[in-house]
């Protein structure tokens, strides 16, 4: 058993699951479907869903797309809900797979939880076949220059929200060509709005996001950094000539 090198969400807030269903992320399956169409995964494609959570993407890839999809997560509790589907308990940056054995990797709302994303990207490179696909969706900071404040105190993906430029550079340095990047911040805004509605106030949402408390200054910094949500589709670069 390897030491887990990612932050696992300690629990899934009931309110989040109530709103998002089993996807547990902004936009639900909309971006998953868009990415699967873009990559044109064919029935039988070998696809790994890293951070498969409650198995929503895995079920979509297997039942709707006919992929030979497998899921991976570090939370045994979540994996226990992926009944009847092939799943593994492992960290996202130490993958128990042979080299070049996968056609694609989905990594939805997970990179922001990794302590060292480049390490995971290099591992993705290792297990993908040449020209294999990497699909990322995640929160990012639309205005990173303003300073994000103490977002690390957040119990959510916000804690690891990165700068898009930095993320693109990491992907490129680790062997990927980013083929597509799209901003889908609307999904994050709408999820936050639905959580406020369900909880009843913005204050209660802040308490959920920052269980240890969030100072007025940090709250202001977070608004200044303007968290957004994005889709990245990258392809493994070919061998150097």
């Amino acid at each position: 058993m390897t030491a887990f090198t990612a932050r696992a969400l300690s629990h899934v807030p009931h309110v989040l699951r109530g709103i998002t269903g089993n996807t547990l992320r902004p936009g639900g399956l909309a971006l998953t479907e868009r990415a699967a169409d873009w990559c044109a995964f064919q029935p039988g494609a070998r696809v790994l869903d890293i951070g498969c959570g409650l198995g929503a993407t895995l079920m979509y890839l297997r039942d709707i797309r006919g992929c030979r999809a497998c899921g991976l997560a570090i939370s045994a509790q979540m994996l226990s809900e992926c009944r009847g589907m092939p799943v593994l308990q492992a960290a996202g940056d130490i993958l128990p797979f042979y080299d070049k054995c996968l056609d694609g990797i989905f990594c939805e709302c997970v990179v922001s939880l990794l302590v060292e994303p480049p390490k995971a990207f290099r591992e993705f490179c290792r297990v993908l076949r040449p020209a294999g696909w990497l699909v990322l969706t995640d929160v990012y900071l639309r205005n990173p220059q303003s300073g994000a404040g103490d977002l690390a105190a957040s119990a959510t993906c916000l804690s690891g929200a990165s700068d898009n430029t930095e993320l693109m550079k990491h992907l490129n340095d680790c062997g990927f060509d980013v083929i597509l990047w799209e901003d889908h911040s609307r999904y994050l805004t709408e999820l936050a709005a639905r959580m406020v509605w369900t909880l009843g106030s913005r204050e209660l949402l802040m308490q959920l996001l920052f269980p240890g408390g969030c100072s007025a200054e940090n709250k202001q910094n977070m608004q200044g950094a303007s968290p957004g949500y994005g889709l990245w589709i990258a392809r493994l670069k070919g061998p150097k000539r």
Partner: peptide, 14 residues
């Protein structure tokens, strides 16, 4: 005046 106003404020602050 309650949750709807809160949601409006959240969307204005985004």
């Amino acid at each position: 005046l309650g949750k709807m106003a809160e949601v409006e404020q959240a969307l204005e602050d985004k």
